[in-house]
Computed example of a mutant assay.
Amino acid sequence: MTQPKVTLVVSPRERFSYTRASLESIYANTDYPFDLVFVDVCSPESVQTYLKATSQSFKILRTDHYLSPNQARNVGLRYVLDHTDSQYVVFIENDVVVKRGWLTRLVNCAAETNASVVGPLTCIGNPAHQVIHNAGGQCYIKTDFKNGQARRRIKQSAYLTGRAVADVRDQLHRTPCDYVEFHCMLVRTDTFAMTGLLDEGMLATREHIDFCFMVAQTGGEIYNEREAVVTTDTLGLASNKAGLMARFGQLKLPDFQWSDLPYFMLRWSDRWDRASLDHLRQKWNLAEDKYFTKRYAGLGSRRHELLIQPIVQYLTFGKGSPWLEKLLISLERPFNNYWFNRYAQRFEQS
Rank of each mutant, 00 (worst) to 15 (best):
D273P: 00
Q149H: 12
L172A: 01
V47W: 06
V187E: 01
T175G: 01
A150H: 07
R152T: 02
D289Q: 11
N108C: 07
I329E: 15
S86W: 02
G119W: 02
L315D: 08
I141W: 06
Q130G: 04
S116C: 06
P69H: 08
V10A: 10
N336Q: 13
K294H: 13
R281M: 15
E93A: 03
W268R: 03
D190C: 11
R346C: 08
K99Q: 14
H173E: 14
V41A: 03
V9H: 04
N108Q: 12
P127I: 01
Y296R: 09
F192E: 09
H133C: 05
N70Q: 08
R302M: 14
H279M: 03
V9Q: 05
D144S: 13
A158V: 09
F335G: 09
T49Q: 14
V215K: 05
R174Y: 02
Q130Y: 05
W272P: 04
M245E: 14
T316L: 09
L261Q: 02
Y66E: 05
P44D: 07
R295Q: 12
V187N: 00
W258F: 14
V98F: 00
A344T: 09
L315A: 11
W323M: 11
A111F: 03
Y223P: 00
V80C: 03
E200G: 11
P334V: 13
G162E: 10
M1T: 09
S116N: 03
L280K: 02
N126R: 14
N134S: 13
G101E: 06
L121T: 05
L203Q: 13
P69Q: 14
D170P: 01
Y314I: 04
R247M: 10
Y66M: 06
T30R: 00
T218S: 05
A275R: 15
A128N: 14
F317G: 02
V165Q: 00
Q257D: 13
N337M: 11
A242H: 11
T63G: 05
K290M: 07
D260T: 03
V117R: 05
M245Q: 12
Y32W: 03
L237M: 13
V37S: 02
N341M: 12
D95G: 00
G125R: 10
A238F: 06
H183T: 04
Q71T: 09
L324T: 05
R20A: 14
F335R: 14
G137A: 07
E348F: 09
P44E: 08
A53R: 12
E24Y: 00
T231D: 08
V229S: 01
Y343W: 15
Q171M: 12
W284D: 04
